[in-house]
Nucleic acid binder design. Structure first.
Lengths: 202, 202, 202, 202
DNA sequence: CATGAATGAGCATTCATTCAT
DNA sequence: AATGAATGAATGCTCATTCAT
């Protein structure tokens, strides 16, 4: 448990000192930037601290360890994505809801490419330190997709709906990363259309 | 350049290539096993050598560096996949050809889960040492898929075909990894069906 | 660039420089002791750190590399020699000035035998990592000697003065090392006299 | 004991197989070339073998170890120098004899710069593996010089003659290396003159 | 005689973590 | 709340040496 966590545990809903919050956010921003590009193992705590403009000691004071810092970073990013997708889930037209979610996901992958890269790298990695966090995120996202898919066509066995949701999830993730790495010219719409073909026939 | 490569570059009748080949294959097999599970950075050369039953020096004698060894491992795995997919590409019925390729890919991802994990992790990683190798593989696989998709429905702009091929690629990869990590009970057929939905309606 | 150098480059009020300085000097002293005896390649960083009573990591924290540490050690020693010789250069009697410099050099070679050995070994070594440092030192020492020689007898071409200065430099170096290795009984005065014979005749 | 040495020990004055002699000389030539430039510790047996165009095993077959190979190389070079200097020692005019020896030494240092470098580096090195060889060489050369000096001016104590001989030795060595490294334009004659100044005045 | 694949002890270097200030 | 000097276990890599062919 890092020092601020200890303090919070003792003091109840402390108004967190502004200085700590600022340091944490500088570290989030800097890590997000460089960890996605170079990978969590290739980036050193020194580099993160330098990029954030704080001392190395601050990382340990605020997060306790490098691993924990990355974990909180992932939670931070995952919450943003889930919040954004959740907002679109209850649109009246189910097909439009799914399309909106795919589009929103593409936007998110575009805005947080480093988070996206980290997710793809670690989610299926059996020995990843962040597997619990990432597989929970994967589960929640796929649940949202499956719900949308089910509203479009509730027939068929549950297993098939889950499989379809996973396929949509994978296609979206791949298109998002591909736009970043290989095809920046590819339009968001074209990607949404390609993904939506799997639920396209009325 | 590793010692065997230097020797090969000079041509001439390689005197004792059998021993070298044996060592290299033992290293390939052992690496494939453990690198995918724990990630290339978390696995040490000592562990690889021990798992292969050779000395650490042999790794360096044969490959020159850990990075180069993994690179050759990736080429090795990629060649297997491409060879397998290529064999299915010219089936008469284009829809059956694509379905066969998706199925074959799933089998491959099942047989070589470590290779699959490494691929997913590093392919879109901008600073990966193996990016050149992996992105070439990605390109060749997507080309195969696009050719199959084009045979099914040649209408529409090229860009859309490329995008669709990428979506199919991503969906298959995700389903393959998901079967390994989260849903071992999910059938190969269900996965193929889910992927094929994007080209299913005549 | 080592960490303290990075810090120094940014200026600002160095907070805890005393600790760093202490560590650096402990390392200088210990290295000077053992590197000259066994040669820079035969001495390990572990040994140096152990001899200095600091951790191996400290060597890297303070100098960045073994090579850089030795480089700074050489600069450190060279500055001492040059400072000592420079103080004697402007004695009124030129012959006495040169004799004093030769004697002082012999004293220095006696006090810092490891530095002397390193200098002799690496100065004329075309591929030495420390060639730039050592050849600059050689140049400055020879310049001092030539100035003294010129004051004794300004006639003759410049080239001859340079050559004579080099001969004096070499003779002194050899006598200094020889006293350490083979003839500890040989007196300082006898050495000075032998060197001074080349400028002895009025 | 290396294999040919074993053979020689058994068979008496064997006519050494031509193949062995050829291999040894190729190795001498190649080592002399690169060891002097890069230092004995920085040069690997692989490099030496490659430069000589023989296999690494041949080095061990012929010399038993890297250290022994360099030792024989040094003996080889030292014999050449001593033979050349010895031939000049009994010239009638003692001053001319010494000048001829200094000149001959400069020629030798010019022809075998790598040997010269190795000598300078290792001769005064207390822990050098080749110290015995090199200090014997140093002794024999200084004896020759002292004999010549004694013939010029036999007065004065023995110790002074020895010291003077060492000074001449050092001056010559330094001028020889300096010509190679820093002043290739400096003439052989100018160097001889500078060295001879210490015995120049009748 | 010669080769070159294999070895493993040894080494320079990295980096997450600690702690006195 | 923050700092940065110091640490040392861990790791990639080198290279002299061996030995089966």
């Amino acid at each position: 448990m890092s020092a601020p966590e200890r303090a919070a545990a003792q003091a109840g809903p402390t108004l967190r000192p502004a200085r700590t919050e600022a340091t944490r956010h500088k570290l989030f921003a800097a890590s997000m930037e460089i960890i996605g590009e170079r990978g969590p193992h290739s980036v050193t705590v020194d580099e993160i601290a330098a990029a954030a403009g704080v001392s190395k000691g601050s990382v340990y004071y605020n997060f306790g360890s490098k691993s924990e810092m990355i974990g909180q970073l992932l939670r931070f990013g995952g919450d943003i994505l889930l919040e954004r997708l959740g907002r679109l889930a209850d649109r009246p037209d189910p097909r439009q809801a799914l399309a909106a979610m795919v589009g929103e996901a593409l936007d998110f992958l575009d805005e947080y490419p480093s988070f996206a890269q980290l997710w793809v790298s670690e989610m299926w990695h059996s020995a990843s330190e962040w597997r619990p966090i990432l597989s929970r995120m994967r589960g929640e996202v796929i649940d949202l997709v499956r719900a949308a898919v089910t509203r479009i066509d509730p027939s068929g066995p549950d297993e098939d709906l889950d499989t379809l949701a996973t396929a949509i999830f994978g296609a979206t993730l791949a298109l998002g990363r591909d736009r970043h790495s290989f095809h920046p010219e590819r339009s968001r719409d074209a990607c949404v259309r390609a993904v939506m073909r799997s639920v396209a026939h009325p």
